[in-house]
Write a protein that binds this DNA or RNA. Structure first.
Lengths: 210, 210
DNA sequence: GGGTATTTAACATGTTTATGTGATTTGCTG
DNA sequence: CAGCAAATCACATAAACATGTTAAATACCC
């Protein structure tokens, strides 16, 4: 028997979900609330397996509710419910430890399936949500385009700068004269359009040159 | 009618998948191959809607096949097939533009469902795979622990250092004497355990202080 | 073969940083 | 209230850095 709590401000949807889930074998709705004001106490009192949490609620919204629960309970599974498969909310929810993210238009049969999956440790999500997640994922570690045409030797010097080496130390490390180090660094500054060591270091991090 | 290509080295599984999918209404398997040697030509010749791609194949494996296809075709939907919900492969596949990631043990009914979802732009994934993805996601932008106890003013100075300001410029920006800037920076160096501007900048990036 | 980029190096000059020492004011805390 | 951290400023000195100019050896491309 999977025990649930529901948070949803729309009365029709709240009742509908409760009826649907309660009427299904193996599911039990412990209670349904219209906001997250007392979410921490309620979760503690009812000790559910899974929580259905609407994102858009007046007052304390679903994301805030999620955070409050996670602050005291990392165990209960939380499925976020929303009408939109919108980027920002998904990201926020994931970062704050939601176990799944499903659309309200999800058909009843699938909803029950998702709840069951969440209970057993899966992270159910609508295919359209998964698309968003994948897009975010691949966009966030895309290698930077600009490479500024640094030569091999210049890249080495820049790496050592980033690692906190002084000119003298770089000269020692690379077995070249300190004036040669200066030459390289002048060239690097030209190519990166900077004019100080720390700017070069900052740019190296920002543009993932190192 | 959804047209598919299958890449799978295991003959039984390859045949089984072909039979299963061909025998279902609305699906047509154009061909099934045991490796990705000629994947580019084959995709071009058959022009499928969806490709089922096994990850672990001898010779040219699924990830390599995925890359080769994406190099010339960003349109066809590619579902990766694997026995493991293993972290590294998932990440690789996502980065290289896979549209979904499903386990071989996925029951037939669900498999067909996933294929249909992929065709319409969704990103189907098994709940256990989604769990991995979400974990990766939340682990990759976890805030750094150490905050080094920088005071408000010190944080401002550090921010300006990161932005490439000289002491003089910082003094101007913050309406304080240059010697005060020095004082702050000395304190910052103590707290960060560094002894140069560029090291401080590097540390600021590494530890996400800024 | 001549133009171009890379790597190496030297010399000079001025600016910026790093470090030490010391001091005053403010506000918080036990 | 005494003590402490934070923020402010001053003076001094040495080291590190930025910039300009010049130039030789090597290598690659059209």
């Amino acid at each position: 028997m999977i025990k649930l709590l529901i948070y949803e401000d729309n009365p029709q949807l709240r009742e509908g979900l409760s009826m649907l889930i309660s009427g299904s074998d193996g599911f039990e709705v412990l209670a349904a609330f219209k906001n997250c004001e007392n979410v921490v106490d309620e979760v503690e009192a009812f000790n559910p397996d899974v929580i259905l949490m609407d994102i858009d609620m007046p007052g304390v919204n679903g994301l805030e509710g999620l955070k409050r629960i996670r602050a005291v309970n990392t165990n209960v599974k939380i499925l976020m419910l929303t009408v939109f498969d919108d980027n920002k909310n998904i990201f926020q929810a994931i970062s704050n430890g939601a176990n799944g993210y499903i659309l309200k238009k999800t058909p009843p049969a699938k909803l029950l399936e998702y709840i069951a999956e969440a209970k057993t440790g899966g992270a159910p999500m609508t295919a359209s949500v998964a698309t968003q997640v994948l897009k975010m994922f691949s966009s966030m570690n895309n290698e930077k385009g600009e490479d500024y045409n640094l030569s091999e030797r210049e890249k080495q010097v820049l790496q050592l700068l980033v690692d906190g080496y002084s000119y003298k130390m770089i000269a020692g490390e690379m077995f070249i004269a300190i004036d040669t180090v200066r030459s390289h660094i002048k060239k690097i500054y030209e190519k990166l359009h900077v004019n100080s060591k720390s700017e070069a270091v900052a740019k190296a991090f920002k543009d993932k040159i190192v």
